[in-house]
Amino acid sequence: MANVVFNEPLCKGCALCVSVCPKKIVSLSKRSNEKGYFVAEVKDMSLCIGCAACALMCPDVVIEVSR
């Protein structure tokens, strides 16, 4: 059981989280935030192992991880 929460208004869609996820479950959505960036998301949270790789790589401290 793990969960990641994206603070979407802060996301800049840089996709560094996408590049480091060992489970390849993070992707950029088709949804843009107020700044106009396509925000990162996890479609199937059941696959998340809560390793926090995405959060450690995120330059904007967008992601909170629970396990």
Partner: peptide
């Protein structure tokens, strides 16, 4: 569930520019 990663208290809430 426990938080395994959250923002440091030594960062403000101001979004990085």
């Amino acid at each position: 569930m426990q938080k395994v990663f959250q923002k440091s208290a030594l960062l403000t809430d101001t979004p990085f520019h």
